[in-house]
């Protein structure tokens, strides 16, 4: 019991240290790195959202970029051309749009299993991609600009302006903390345990009385909504959205972040995103064939740490209570390998 508490204390201290470092960053680092880190945190949010269905639900989705991009497009379409959009209306609308898309796509895709599920989600993701690519709804293949970033203003007084890099950074950090808290709560709740039970043995979970389809659909919509949070922030940061944001390349990249971070924890994919994006940044600066080096390093990580980078944690801090071997992992890895080779 004492050891349990000691482990928990270390986890809390480590989390606190990370949070303090993240809060201190904008006061210590140049703006470029603050923006770079914000971008990495946004991708981390997307990876954590995806992992709710991949790691905890055992459902490998290849359409999460579509939820991500859709929220970005909602912001772009709701933004006035020369004025700031209201954060308080566009943010919930964007997130709800992504969650609704998750609900509709999930309701259809969750009728299939395994590789068929992957293909159906891929097909729906590509449908949304081509919707924005081939129609004039939002600039077609050229994409669309968000000239002024959203703000919170009450009676003409600006309270929060995402145009300021430091404000934007702290808004991203607050969203990140919110997403981590929400996912941690869901994963530890009876709902989260039922979701994991359905992943490990669908037949048994159903015959115990769990409504599998409903559980997975709720998880899928929630995951889509959280991907929308990330998409909204990404669109606000770049001030530009293009169809590539919804494409399967993006989905596959996020899946790689999930895999290198580890499937069985909430924050593993965040670590995976930071590692992958950091790696790209370093390699790009020093190598011409950086993609080749990146691929080799990713293969190395997956081979040496089959449970993800989060596996390093127990090596450093002593054993954590649960490090189960991943059953759904082989399937996920296979999907990623296929997607990357295509």
């Amino acid at each position: 019991m004492f050891e349990m508490n000691a482990t928990r204390l270390r986890v809390w201290l480590f989390t606190l240290a990370c949070l303090i470092a993240a809060i201190a960053l904008p006061f210590l680092a140049p703006t470029y790195y603050v923006q770079f880190f914000a971008k990495a945190l946004i991708m981390g949010m997307l990876a954590m959202a995806l992992n709710l269905v991949v790691g905890h639900g055992g459902l490998v989705s290849l359409c999460h970029a579509a939820f991500f991009g859709l929220a970005g497009y909602v912001l772009a379409l709701l933004s006035p051309r020369y004025d700031a959009a209201s954060l308080l209306t566009t943010f919930p609308l964007a997130v709800l749009s992504s969650a609704a898309a998750g609900l509709v796509i999930g309701a259809l895709a969750l009728r299939t299993r395994g590789i068929y599920f992957i293909m159906v989600t891929l097909a729906f993701g590509e449908m949304l991609f081509f919707f924005f690519h081939d129609t004039k709804v939002a600039g077609g293949s050229d994409g669309i600009f968000i000239n002024v970033r959203p703000e919170i203003a009450v009676a003409g007084r600006q309270l929060l302006d995402l145009d300021k890099p430091i404000t934007f950074y702290f808004f991203v950090l607050a969203c990140l903390v919110g997403v981590v808290a929400l996912l941690t709560m869901v994963v530890r709740s009876p709902f989260g345990h039922a979701l994991a039970a359905a992943r490990d043995n669908e037949r048994r979970a159903r015959s115990l009385g769990f409504p599998i389809f409903r559980i997975r659909l709720i998880a899928f919509a929630l995951s889509g909504g959280l991907a929308g949070v990330a998409g909204y922030l990404a669109a606000a940061q770049f001030g530009f959205v293009a169809p590539q944001m919804l494409g399967w390349h993006q989905s596959a990249t996020v899946l790689v972040m999930v895999l290198i971070g580890g499937l069985r924890s909430v924050t593993g994919p965040l670590v995976g995103a930071l590692v992958l994006i950091g790696l790209e940044e370093v390699l790009k600066a020093h190598l011409d064939n950086w993609k080749l080096a990146e691929g080799l390093i990713i293969i190395g990580i997956v081979v040496m740490l089959p449970n993800g980078i989060r596996q390093i944690w127990p090596m450093i801090f002593g054993s954590s209570p649960e490090v189960p071997v991943d059953a759904g992992r082989a399937e996920a890895e296979h999907a990623v390998a296929e997607a990357r080779h295509a």
Partner: peptide
């Protein structure tokens, strides 16, 4: 899990 499936709130998301 089996007991949870027959409890009053089998899919509670809080707590």
């Amino acid at each position: 899990l089996a007991a949870q499936a027959r409890s009053s709130a089998p899919l509670r998301m809080f707590g």
